[in-house]
Amino acid sequence: MRHDKAAMIIDLARGMAASAEGLSLADMQTQLGAGRRTTERMRDAVLMLFPQVEEISDPPSKRWRIRGGLSAFEQAPTATEMLELTKAAAGHRAAGEAARAAALEGLERKVKAAIRSTTLNRMAPDLEALVRAETIAVQAGPRPTADETVLAEIRGAVLAERPLSFIYARPGAEARTRSVAPCGLMFGRANYLVAADRESGRIQTFRLDRMSAVEAGEGTARPPADFDLGAFAGQSFGIYQDEIEDVVLRIAPEGADEARGWRWHPTQTLTEEADGSVTVRFRASGMRELAWHLFTWGEQATILGPQRLKTAMVEALAAAGRALERAQI
Rank of each mutant, 00 (worst) to 15 (best):
R2G: 03
R2I: 14
R2T: 04
D4Q: 15
D4E: 12
I9H: 08
R14N: 00
A17F: 09
S24K: 07
S24N: 03
L25S: 04
L25R: 14
M28Q: 02
Q29Y: 05
R37L: 08
T38G: 03
T38D: 04
E40T: 10
M42E: 03
R43D: 07
V46N: 01
L47K: 11
M48P: 03
L49A: 15
F50S: 02
E54L: 07
E55M: 15
S57H: 12
K62P: 06
K62G: 00
R67G: 02
G68T: 02
L70Q: 04
A76H: 04
P77A: 04
A79I: 04
E81N: 03
E81T: 07
M82G: 01
M82F: 04
E84D: 11
T86D: 14
A90C: 05
G91L: 13
A94K: 15
A95S: 11
A98T: 05
L107R: 15
R109H: 03
A113V: 09
L120N: 08
A133Y: 02
V138E: 04
Q139F: 01
Q139M: 12
T145G: 15
E148L: 15
A152S: 11
V158W: 08
V158H: 05
A160D: 07
E161S: 08
L164I: 10
G172R: 10
A173E: 13
T177F: 02
S179H: 10
V180T: 02
V180S: 00
G184L: 12
G184I: 09
L185M: 13
M186P: 03
R189L: 14
N191A: 09
N191Q: 07
Y192S: 07
L193V: 06
R198D: 00
G201D: 10
G201S: 02
Q204W: 09
T205E: 08
R210F: 11
S212P: 14
A213C: 12
G219Y: 04
R222T: 12
A225I: 11
F227S: 06
F227A: 03
D228G: 05
A231S: 01
F232M: 10
F232Y: 15
G234Q: 08
F237E: 00
G238D: 00
I239C: 05
I239H: 13
D242N: 15
E243Y: 07
A252F: 07
P253I: 05
P253E: 01
G255P: 14
D257W: 13
E258I: 14
R263E: 09
Q268H: 05
Q268R: 12
T269W: 04
A274Y: 01
D275N: 09
G276M: 09
V280R: 03
V280T: 04
R281N: 13
R283Y: 00
A284N: 11
A284I: 05
S285Q: 05
A291C: 06
L294H: 00
T296Y: 10
E299P: 15
E299W: 15
P306E: 01
A312V: 07
A316Y: 08
L317G: 01
A319R: 12
G321I: 11
A327P: 08
